[in-house]
Nucleic acid binder design. Sequence first.
DNA 1: TTACTGGTTTCTAAATTTGGAAACTTTGCA
DNA 2: TGCAAAGTTTCCAAATTTAGAAACCAGTAA
Lengths: 102, 102
Amino acid sequence: MKTYSLGEMKDKHIGPIGSSERDEYEYELRMEVLGKMIKTTRRERNLTQEELGKLVGVQKAQISKLESSTNSATIDTILKVFSAMKAEINFNVRLEDNFVKL
Amino acid sequence: MKTYSLGEMKDKHIGPIGSSERDEYEYELRMEVLGKMIKTTRRERNLTQEELGKLVGVQKAQISKLESSTNSATIDTILKVFSAMKAEINFNVRLEDNFVKL
DNA sequence: TTACTGGTTTCTAAATTTGGAAACTTTGCA
DNA sequence: TGCAAAGTTTCCAAATTTAGAAACCAGTAA
């Protein structure tokens, strides 16, 4: 049973914690990493974009757009894609302590 | 440092693993739970929808829609909201073993 | 070189989300 | 009860995503 976390993906695709790249892009790369996760999962399943497209019910071009984070995908779309690959995507929230209510 | 996982949220808002509700809604409630996570985090921060709206830069009605999963939010929107609350949302993917490529 | 597979890009239309405004409902409390 | 704050819903316009189609761009193998 294979699992990737966001952290691993960031280490791999952006850089380790503390590196300037990692710090700088910490926010905006979230979305991009999601695309990478789709790609990684698809590869893990040995699927081409076209095959995945068929499973999801869209054209390969759509998959390409999702993987490259061409646009900010909808939760609905994301769930559909992972579901087609029989992969479960989970979210979890961590509260940071540096929050002050004005 | 508080953390919620998707699992906890589902236990709390839907029912424990094995319960019929939990099984039945396992797929389609994912989206809904994300809304609940926003709400829970907001409460944790002691914010009203209006206050959170101000932080994000939208009206309280928007926050309401997001929390109730009126529509399938965009990743971009979700990140903006959690970011405004100084909360980090993470994803992770688990490959299920019951996948057969045709 | 040619052909083929896998991936990306552009264009266009349709569907959906975003957002503001205002009315409405619920909740909580004095 | 009655008031005010908090949350929800509806309506509408603007922006964005989704989706298909087709052209295009690697690679790679014959």
